[in-house]
Nucleic acid binder design. Structure first.
Lengths: 349, 349
DNA sequence: CTGTTAGCGCCTTCAA
DNA sequence: TTGAAGGCGCTAACAG
């Protein structure tokens, strides 16, 4: 045993165990444990002595030991694609807040769009015995999902996957959001509306694309025209290239909706670079309402998808599925709607 | 013992222990442990059997138990002010990468500029037995620091604190960075240069402020003039208000340096709102080079402070101080320099 | 109300 | 090269 641990100079002393506290308070370790976990079961006077010892020794319970015996790690996993993507920091922050409120710590990892890295994250989370994982990215493959659910680790996905026993799913109403955007433009008199999509293969992006086509189909288009959809990549650069294509079109669209805000920002930039003005020559609508949208020039009209709401929904889904046994019909879908935020990149034709 | 754990349908089976593996491979648990930790000490043939069992059972070692016995959690703590502040996500990502390379997981928390919350973070980290903490915020008070270092938890700070046994410090050369900014402006012919500072009490911000005054003092100012310093808050809004003040000044400065990029962005916005142009009427330099700087309009000239470098320095400092015992003269200062990044918000007078 | 005892899953002497 | 046994710090029966 490390002699330092029993140094009499308490200021300098490092880690103490429940046993040290017990000794100092003249009680058994059980009593110490109980004053910590089930205070009602212990005589107030005794408890007081215990607390004094705890304070004197600067005792902190060892979570590892606690977890080992209780089988509960009180850790939640959170996997995002890339934390430097402005969509995620707020999500991470809110998720941590929610988890904290439930007494959980959070292990955050970025998949960086790399399945290998993703698998590695999952392995580490299993080894750490996380009690649930929020998968806010689409790199998750079925193999991993199966692995996790066979271990009864509750999972919650964003947009992908389908709810089952211990798998919940957060379903964003992209169709509704895109429709809000399109209707807003239509209400301003726009008819030739283009769309800049996200990367191919990203389910949520493809949903937005087809939602756009649907929304447009419900409008009376100018005779013989079909709506233009350009491919973006959900990054600024994709918006820039899309704008360059867009401005070549004749007749040129009078408005464009983007699959996310970064794309819209690229659009703004390229349009201005071409010597045109937003919304004078072209109206632009984004999607997500990232923090930055408020500070573009002009401030971006967009469709808000609340990261706070996503995070909270994810956390409660996990909490709900926590003690779930297979077959109990846990796992649920949580639907999230969007709100149009009108700022200054849209105007009458 | 949970019967499910011994279900013969391995696909559905959840958690297994080292004991299950041992049984299945017909060896003792010691041998299993050894094939995992010290493979050289085990007969290749035996090891093969063990690995097969591990795979069959989808066995994952339990980190809690491992930590408990080894006394090493393989977790690093990272405390940032506010992860939604664009300065931090990159830092977090890089820190996680570095930690991962050293076999550590990371517990990230945001202090949200709240000392109470900070203390709570620290407590959780102690309870989880983190092996080191990177404190990338200034909410840390001496009491917490003392607590941690008396437990021999290596600490690394950004800008604050002074190196000691198990405390390292990352020292950014703000003076050099600000000087780069000022010299750049001077080289473009600017003489009336203003500065928008950060929040009062933030050491790194105050350093930048005084560095600005120093740099200006070294220049020949127009007769009888002293450089203007306005107070900002390191947020966009602070830049906006500062710009409003700034534009009232007579004679009006021809250039302004900001204490960080968000401030500069606020400046850009307000100047444009006032009908003036950047850099035509006013040159602007930022500080940090956040991701966004490249996408402002016009793209922001700024001083780059690499978050990757900070994160890597922080992680290696922690690694270096890991096994440190008091008095061994560990803990070091790591100096970081900055680079001027010239974009389009600065021009000749 | 309090204490004794038996593990949680794993690593690590010590023996064989 | 392998195994048996003890213990990491803590909680949870079970007795008193």
């Amino acid at each position: 045993m490390d002699p330092v641990a029993y140094d009499s100079d308490l200021q300098r002393v490092g880690k103490h165990t429940i046993r040290d506290v017990a000794r100092r308070a003249n009680v058994s370790i059980t009593t110490v444990s109980r004053t910590l976990n089930t205070p009602d079961l212990v005589e107030p006077e005794t408890a007081k002595r215990v607390w004094a010892a705890i304070k004197d020794l600067r005792y902190y319970p060892n979570t590892q030991a606690r977890s080992l015996v209780s089988g509960r790690s009180r850790i939640l996993g959170l996997i995002v694609s890339d934390i430097t993507n402005p969509f995620f920091p707020e999500l991470v922050a809110s998720f941590e807040d929610s988890a904290l409120n439930h007494g959980f710590d959070v292990l955050v990892t970025s998949s960086n769009y790399d399945p290998q890295r993703m698998a590695n994250s999952v392995r580490r989370m299993i080894e750490r015995n996380v009690e649930g994982i929020a998968v806010m990215t689409s790199e998750m493959d079925d193999h991993l999902t199966g692995q996790l659910s066979s271990r009864n680790v509750p999972l919650v996905f964003l947009d992908v996957g389908s709810a089952s026993d211990t798998i919940s799913n957060i379903v964003v109403d992209y169709a509704g959001g895109i429709q809000q955007a399109v209707e807003h433009l239509v209400s301003l008199g726009h008819e030739r509306i283009a769309f800049v999509s996200g990367p191919a293969g990203l389910k949520s992006a493809e949903e937005r694309s087809s939602a756009f086509l649907d929304a447009m189909a419900r409008r009376d288009l100018p005779r013989g025209e079909t709506p233009v959809v350009l491919r973006g990549d959900h990054k600024v650069s994709g918006g820039v290239s899309a704008a360059e294509e867009l401005l070549q079109l004749t007749p040129r669209p009078t408005a464009v909706a983007a699959s996310n805000d970064l794309t819209a920002i690229g659009l703004l930039r390229a349009v201005r670079a071409a010597g045109l003005s937003v919304p004078g020559d072209l109206s632009v609508v984004g999607f997500d309402d990232i923090w930055l949208a408020e500070y573009t020039d002009p401030p971006l009209t967009t469709v808000r998808l609340s990261r706070t709401a996503i995070a909270e929904a994810a956390c409660s889904a996990l909490m709900a599925d926590l003690g779930a046994r297979p077959g109990n019909g846990n796992g649920r879908e949580h639907r999230l709607s969007t709100q149009l935020v009108v700022r200054a990149t849209t105007a009458r034709v």
